[in-house]
Nucleic acid binder design. Structure first.
Lengths: 215, 215
DNA sequence: ATATTCACAGTCAGAATTGACTGTCAACCA
DNA sequence: TGGTTGACAGTCAATTCTGACTGTGAATAT
């Protein structure tokens, strides 16, 4: 085991700081490129140019293109989680807690950064490596993910059909977001959203336990 | 205007037949490659080799890669529509009409060919040309699409919350399908599906009109 | 003080893909 | 029957991307 740089009294870990700073910059750039240009456009060259670093720099931090994408995936997931809280603040004016939670989820899912994540999911269907990376990323962030969700929905989860409504809302939000890419009429999104909010309200008060137990 | 080949007495339109046959073969191959290898793997070269045609042949029918993909998109959409009816037949044992319709939708959406379509949607986010092609394709098949949906859900659409449930089911199916790509536990899919079926049953009998009208 | 390690830069060859181009043969028309 | 058209094949240059390789300077260890 080598002596830790932190043991030096002065200028400790300058190299490491540099390294981390560059790496962070590369990830930041990679995420931006991914959001703007999609998976196909997220080449090592594009990221290298975006970050204005030499070819060796990028390859030093991410030996292969797959490595770069893997790390980018994780970074993107973090970013999207942060969006949830930000959007929750932005929609603080919505009084009904259930409607607020659903609208926050739907809005976050419709953001470019989340759509980029969905794109990765879709593409990973025929890309073993990427799928593995996404699974690892999701698995690692599971705790945070659950916490964010719990914060968002609050005591709704404790009501009879609460958990069901939350789970259904997740899938619904993803579908809504994906469909939104092609949608010409933005009004339909709002209509669907309203309908789901109304449905969700019915569901949390209704006892649909017997239905779910029929499986 | 040129004389129609059909006016010739014998061997009429052999060239045209040949042309159509080759084109059909190319589309068939392109769809297969797209389903198997995803958008990134659907190169002109891959399709050319799959169909065992010369380079000139493919470029003759589809001058550019974008042209090929555009046509493939339409073909894929047709194929997916056909799947709906096939799956409806396969699930004829499911007695409850609402549950049957929902399960058919969800199953179709989870098929590789439909996932390929969703992948195209996702990718089209940052690809103007592809998005336009998808919109055109969807627009052209709208009539058929509505008819298939009407056949599937039957008289459910006439009930109070019927249309709403159908629309929500569509988005839910897409979300479920996309999530399924990464899901390790296949049991969760079935659970979510059951929960949505149960919820849908509640919704069609419940009057959630006032909720939807609050928008 | 010197050797070494490491972050970073630049160059380059190889692989993959695209689309332009030329050639060929069979079918159609005059 | 002879010319023309169109389906199809093969070749090739240009482009793009990847990753291997070599070089450099600053920070750290001895």
């Amino acid at each position: 085991m080598k002596a830790d740089a932190a043991t030096s009294s002065r200028g400790a870990g300058v190299r490491r700081d540099q390294r981390d700073a560059t790496r962070a910059r590369l990830l930041e750039g990679a995420v931006s490129v991914l959001i703007e240009h999609g998976v196909a456009g997220t080449t090592t060259l594009a990221v290298q140019e975006r970050c204005d670093v030499g070819r060796g720099t990028l390859l030093h931090h991410f030996p292969t293109h797959a490595d770069m994408l893997s790390s980018t995936v994780t970074e993107l997931a973090h970013r999207n989680e942060a969006f949830v809280e930000a959007e929750a603040d932005r929609l603080s004016s919505v009084t009904d807690p259930l409607e607020r939670a659903i609208r926050v989820m739907a809005n976050v899912a419709s953001q470019p950064s989340y759509l980029a994540e969905l794109e990765l999911w879709a593409v990973s269907r025929t890309d073993e490596r990427l799928r593995a990376a996404l699974r690892t990323s999701e698995h690692g962030a599971r705790r945070d993910h659950d916490r964010v969700l719990a914060d968002l929905f609050g005591d709704i989860a404790d009501q009879p059909g609460g958990t069901t409504v939350i789970n259904l809302s997740i899938e619904f939000s993803r579908g809504l977001a994906l469909s939104g890419i092609l949608r010409r009429d933005p009004g339909k999104r709002e209509r669907l959203l309203c309908e789901w909010v109304a449905a969700a309200k019915v569901l949390v008060t209704s006892t649909l336990k017997q239905g779910a137990e029929q499986c």
